[in-house]
Write a protein that binds this DNA or RNA. Structure first.
Length: 959
DNA sequence: GAGTTTGAAACT
DNA sequence: CAGTTTCAAACTC
């Protein structure tokens, strides 16, 4: 039970984390290789995944094993195996130790090494030999090649890999499929722990190992092996579990030394290192396992002989694939994992996929596993993605992750945000149609043009379908996890349709004519049915779908267009041009509209919240007291008395304001007159010495308005602060800022930082722009009185945000990811279309980080009203987003907040958040985020981040 | 499902 | 800016 004396300090760490150990074992080897060749990376990744999944199961045992010296185990293990393994393991250890530095030099270095070390410690068993055999370590090239080949057989290899993996036992437990793949013999060995069997197998393995070395490695390993074999043969009897440890140890040492000497001579350091690592890995695994399991592993290798190698390689490869997925730009792996865990259905035909999924689930479940991911991610290079379709399929591709994330992001909307592909544009990510809590048309929109950026990147068409579904499911799952509210209509035929539709249209490469036809078909086919469907959907989901007949969905009449999103399949519109295929048209039209009215796509509702948030919310329903939320422009109702949805104020669940020109207003959420009174109250409050805060709040109103204008990412209107700070696009930042307006306190606190913030200049600029905006909106109630100073306060907050933005890794947080993700959705869709990236609040990105903490509550309901809650809770200002719910991020965290907008009608114009560029970064986010919060992770992507900034329109359109 | 009502958007 | 027309959602039957 005592830990082996030889254990290096480094190993200790790895050991602590059982998962890490496992991963490391395999991973380490691969990682080492990876630097040399890309394939390796993939391998490493995949392997890593496999290991992880099992890790949770074995955690305790492994740890024990690891900690426990080989000695302890030996007794347990079958004699032969233990003896030999111990020897080789020992040797391996030394080699590994010597090679450690060498490994460090490698890119992957530490991660790989750590595992290796751990393994070394653990490894006492002969497994090392087998491993070596399994991995013709000597020839990385071969190995890689094999791996590649195996990829073709992905399914098979995968299953095998799972089984054979070091963690095999775990994998077996987890993955039935994999178990099936395992030969009966293996099973027998597994079930039966008979020493005899083990012994029989063992010799075979040793021989095989020897052959392997001879055959594949030019190195003189033979002598060593011979020795080992010899030793092994001898050892078993001598080394029995009962043997004196000291003697045994000494014996090992001798042999080890001999072996080491020979090996060192012949082997290249790198080569040695690799072998040792693999060997260790296997050994560790076997050693960890009860004698039975190790034996199994050995048997597998032995029985299969070289073929096993292939399998193993394949296995590794698959593992690698899995890992790859994880590592893939998406790094998604993490996200995928999360999503997958919940994914109900896996498209995959292949068993492998299933098994993979299973493992993934486990992984997700395991708390530690997450941690493991991170390291992996770091080690893995994104490029892996490209690997093969085989890899892509199931788990995922980036696309999946993205989707999932995206979907997740919109919590409310579930739908997809449209994402702008990194390259061009904008594609909608498909999200699954989650039913948004609030009314979100966005979801609908999202459907339409969902294109997985990743999918493209991946380039594997085959995978698309599967990936697509997976995505959707994942996203849905993620959503579910995140917010119960979201419902996934996985069965929804519309979705299916979408998928089909999307698949084709996704590629812009397609001839436009084809797209157009498809679109037309789509549009024209059974418009009634569609319409009805849409209507139904609205009822059920609360999501809106347009039904435009004459406007071609290129006017503000169209809710989708107004929201800055593409029409979805579910829409019943006719001759719709608001589709990705007509991106240019949409964009142009949008520009025209903005040219006429820069605020056309700006959010319409702003909210000022007072102490009682409940009241303030338009949602309250009641609203005897005029809620702070108000329609930007106000309604013009004459007959409906603001008691029907004809009234935009009512629709948005906000009270009417002075800006309204309604007649006979009876708005339940607040009458026009009442609003005036309320406003007066506020003013009084301001006057009272009571607080500057109140004043600032008032000012905020102004700010809010300004923001309103900004709100859309899409719209250029909003004064964008382009914060270069972050790569993140302004939209994101904007979004955050909007949603989470910094509380007064926050603002105050932030003030100091203001000057220093990198975006300071930007802020100033922004202020200026805000001013302009305000003036622009004079009509609105808010604008009039508010002194400019308001801006300053707000900006201060922003500033602070900016400072935050500077933070090295903003997106890592779940929230952030989620937010970003939503944005991305939006972005995709809108960006191309609508989003202009405004970086409005450069701070945005930073805001998002800070904002969360700062603003306790953000309501992103469909209502479109944004609340900013001060820590004090005294006053809250909310910005309303006109942005579609989807667009609005509902950070999962926020989900708690009720989102529904009764109207379901277009709430706000989409914000452009994500930019294609963000994808990469977003992926990063995902990876990071995943570990911390699996559910949230999906969000990911910050892809949006950059796009707004670049968008010139923002400013131009404003004026 | 068809028709009406309503008010925003678009146009002049 | 005001008035008119167009449009699509909301609503009614």
């Amino acid at each position: 039970m005592t830990p082996p004396p030889t254990q290096p300090p480094t190993t200790a760490n790895s050991q602590s984390d059982s998962v890490a150990i496992q991963d490391s074992a395999i991973f380490g080897d691969i990682s080492n290789l990876s630097p040399v060749k890309p394939l390796k990376d993939a391998l490493v990744v995949s392997r890593f995944l496999e290991l992880r999944s099992p890790s949770p199961v074995f955690t305790s045992p492994r740890v024990n094993k690891l900690q426990g010296t080989t000695y302890l185990k030996r007794p347990q293990c079958s004699q032969l195996c233990s003896a030999e393994s111990s020897q080789q393991g020992f040797i391996a250890e030394e080699i590994a130790v010597s090679s450690n530095e060498f490994e460090k030099s490698n890119i992957q270095g530490s991660s790989a090494l750590a595992p290796v070390n751990c393994i070394e410690k653990e490894c006492i068993n002969n497994c090392s030999v087998q491993d070596q055999t399994a991995y013709p370590s000597g020839h990385t090239d071969e190995y890689l090649a094999d791996a590649v080949i195996d990829c073709a057989n992905s399914t098979h290899s995968a299953s095998l890999s799972l089984i054979q993996s070091d963690d095999v036992p775990q994998s077996l437990t987890t993955c039935p499929d994999s178990i099936e793949m395992v030969p009966e013999r293996d099973r027998k060995t597994n079930t039966g722990q008979d020493e005899e069997k083990a012994l029989d197998a063992f010799p075979a393995t040793t021989e095989l190992a020897g052959q392997d070395f001879e055959g594949k490695s030019s190195f003189d390993i033979n002598p060593i092996e011979t020795d080992t074999n010899h030793g092994v043969s001898k050892m078993p009897p001598s080394v029995g579990p009962k043997d004196d440890l000291s003697l045994y140890h000494a014996f090992e040492k001798q042999q080890c030394e001999i072996l080491v000497a020979q090996i060192t001579k012949d082997l290249n350091c790198a080569y040695q290192h690799l072998q040792s690592n693999q060997g260790y890995e296997d050994c560790t695994e076997t050693t960890r396992e009860d004698s039975n399991k190790p034996i199994e592993n050995m048997i597998l290798h032995c029985t299969k002989g070289k073929q096993d190698r292939g399998h193993r390689r394949c296995l590794q490869f698959e593992d690698a694939q899995l890992h790859t997925m994880a590592s893939s730009p998406g790094s998604w792996s993490s996200s995928n994992i999360v999503s997958n865990s919940k994914i109900p259905t896996i498209p995959a035909d292949t068993k492998v996929s299933e098994s993979f999924c299973v493992e993934v689930r486990e992984i997700t479940t395991g708390g530690q596993q997450i941690n493991v991911n991170q390291p992996i991610i770091s080690t893995i290079s994104p490029r892996n993605i490209g690997n093969s379709r085989s890899t892509v399929p199931k788990p995922s591709g980036i696309g999946l992750h993205l989707n999932s994330i995206i979907n997740a992001m919109p919590n409310g909307c579930g739908a997809i945000g449209s994402m702008k592909s990194a390259e061009k544009g904008y594609r909608n990510l498909e999200g699954r149609k989650l039913v948004p809590i609030m009314g979100c048309h966005p979801p609908e929109n999202t459907k339409k043009s969902l294109v997985l950026p990743s999918a493209r990147e991946r380039g594997s068409a085959s995978s698309e379908d599967g990936s697509y579904e997976t995505k959707s499911t994942v996203s849905a799952n993620s959503h579910a996890s995140m917010s119960p509210q979201i419902v996934e209509p996985s069965n929804d035929p519309a979705l299916l349709k979408q998928s089909e539709y999307q698949t084709t249209p996704r590629d812009k490469t397609k001839s436009t004519s084809v797209r157009a036809d498809a679109a037309e078909e789509y549009n024209t086919s059974n418009p009634q049915k569609i319409r009805k469907k849409a209507l139904d959907a609205n009822d059920g989901d609360g999501c809106k779908r347009c039904n435009c007949k004459k406007s071609r969905c290129l006017k503000l009449y169209c809710d989708c267009f107004a929201a800055g999103i593409y029409c979805a399949e579910s829409c019943a519109c006719q001759d719709c041009l608001n589709r990705p295929e007509y991106e240019d048209t949409v964009f142009d039209t949008r520009q025209q509209i903005e040219s006429r009215n820069p605020l056309a796509f700006a959010p319409k509702i702003i909210q000022l919240i007072t102490d009682s948030p409940a009241n303030s919310n338009g949602e309250d329903g009641n609203n005897s007291t005029p809620s702070s939320a108000r329609h930007k422009r106000g309604c013009n109702c004459k007959k409906s008395m603001c008691l029907k949805k004809y009234c935009e104020c009512y629709q948005a669940n906000v009270g009417c304001s002075n800006g309204c020109r309604c007649e006979g207003c009876k708005n339940v959420y607040g009458r026009k007159e009442e609003y005036g009174m309320a406003k007066d109250v506020l003013d009084q409050g301001l006057e009272s010495p009571f607080d500057e805060k109140l004043e600032t709040m008032a000012n905020r109103d102004t700010l809010l308005q300004t923001e309103l204008y900004n709100p859309h990412n899409l719209t250029p209107l909003t004064p964008s602060f382009q914060f270069s700070d972050h790569a993140k696009d302004a939209s994101n930042s904007w979004f955050f800022s909007r949603r989470c307006l910094p509380s007064l306190e926050s603002d105050l606190t932030s003030l100091p930082s203001f000057g220093e913030s990198p975006g300071h200049a930007m802020l100033i600029k922004a202020r200026k722009e805000f001013k302009d905006l305000v003036s622009w909106h004079q009509g609105s109630d808010y604008s009039d009185t508010e002194p400019v100073s308001g801006f300053s306060t707000r900006y201060d907050g922003l500033t602070s945000v900016c400072d935050h933005s500077t933070l090295p890794d903003p997106p890592s947080t779940d929230i952030g990811s989620s937010v970003s993700f939503e944005r991305s959705d939006w972005t995709t869709s809108s960006r191309a279309q609508f989003c202009r990236g405004s970086g409005h609040l450069s701070s945005v990105s930073s805001l998002r980080w800070h904002s969360t903490p700062i603003t306790p509550v953000a309501k992103f309901d469909g209502t479109k009203i944004l609340q900013a809650v001060d820590s004090d809770e005294k006053v809250h200002y909310m910005l309303e987003d006109d942005m579609p719910d989807i667009l609005k991020d509902k950070p999962t965290a926020i989900d708690g907040v009720k989102v529904s907008s009764p109207n379901k009608k277009r709430i706000s114009p989409p914000r452009c958040s994500s930019s294609s560029t963000g994808l990469k970064s977003g992926r990063k986010f995902i990876l990071r985020s995943v570990p911390s919060f699996p559910p949230l992770t999906p969000c990911i992507d910050s892809k949006d981040s950059s796009r707004n900034i670049n968008d010139p329109r923002d400013f131009s359109s404003k004026k």
